[in-house]
Simulated assay, not measured.
Amino acid sequence: MSLDEKLTDAFPEDLPDVIDDNLKMATVRDLLTMCLGQEQGSLMGEQRPLYQEDDWVKMSLAIPFQYKPGTHFVYNNVGPYLAGILVQRRSGCDLVSYLTPRLFKHLGIKRPTWETDPLGNSFGAGGLFLTLSELHKFGLFYLNKGKWNGKQILFEKWIEESTAASDTDNYGYLFWRGEYNSYRADGKYSQISMILPDKNAVISMVAECRNGEELMSALYDLVCAKL
């Protein structure tokens, strides 16, 4: 699987009857950067229970691609969902089964619960249930550049590429960039694992916060600044 693979090649059986020029240009990389080209976010938490469609792959690809991929940042669950679908189709198993021997087992994370779509596919854009300590291990794994207990599990080059800011926004491949040269995995209502390479530190939290910007400001001012 290549980041440069076109979505029209990756999902040939799921495409709409009319394929616009922007969809023809979209690649797997565009699934990870929130610059897919669609005008607004879909498959978001409050939307998912209300869809009448069961086939979310065909539904997602039928949403108009209003912008040239890579030019317009919109937080959108369609991208990571389709990326997760592609991994499952190529591997022949769900994401938990794929990641357990390759990642979760190494980090000491027991087989976790992960939300599924109506057809039983793992919902790669969210819905993964981790404890605070498990989330923190993920942050430490990235701080250690893909190495755990002396073993390189993930390429260091991928760690660097996935956490670098894009040309269009302060965002990598599903990672937000932040102050103090930080980057973070940031889930809904501030489920956060923030990595600060310059300070050799990881800050993780689980929360139910409806004002994420205020919480992030406090985190920077009261914790990061004092490290």
Rank of each mutant, 00 (worst) to 15 (best):
T113G: 14
L119I: 10
V96M: 01
G108Y: 02
F104V: 07
S97D: 15
P118Y: 06
A125E: 02
T131Y: 04
W114L: 11
G92A: 03
A125M: 09
F123T: 04
A125L: 10
G126P: 11
S122T: 09
F129W: 15
D94P: 09
L99E: 00
C93T: 10
E115S: 14
T113D: 12
L99W: 03
K105C: 09
R90W: 00
L130W: 07
P101Q: 10
K110W: 06
T113V: 14
T116N: 11
R102A: 13
A125F: 05
T116C: 14
S122A: 12
A125I: 05
E115Q: 15
L128G: 10
D117H: 06
R102F: 02
F123D: 06
I109G: 09
T116G: 03
S91I: 00
L103H: 02
Y98V: 06
G127C: 12
P112E: 07
L107G: 06
P118H: 05
K105T: 11
G126K: 11
H106Q: 11
F129H: 13
L103G: 02
L128V: 12
K105M: 09
L95A: 02
L130H: 08
L99H: 00
L103F: 02
D117P: 11
E115C: 11
S91C: 07
E115W: 12
S122N: 09
N121H: 12
T100D: 13
F104Y: 06
S91Y: 00
T131C: 06
R102L: 15
T131F: 09
L119E: 13
T113R: 15
H106C: 03
T131W: 07
G120D: 05
P118Q: 04
R111H: 07
G127D: 12
G92S: 05
T113L: 15
L128Q: 07
T113I: 13
A125C: 11
V96D: 00
L107R: 10
S91A: 14
T113C: 11
A125Y: 03
S122G: 14
L130F: 14
T113F: 15
R111E: 14
G126C: 13
A125N: 07
F104H: 03
K110M: 08
R111W: 02
S91T: 05
G126A: 14
A125V: 08
R90M: 03
R102E: 10
L95W: 01
F123P: 12
L107K: 07
L99T: 00
G108I: 02
S97L: 05
K105Q: 14
P112N: 05
L103Y: 02
F129L: 14
G127A: 10
R102W: 03
P118W: 09
T131G: 09
F123Y: 15
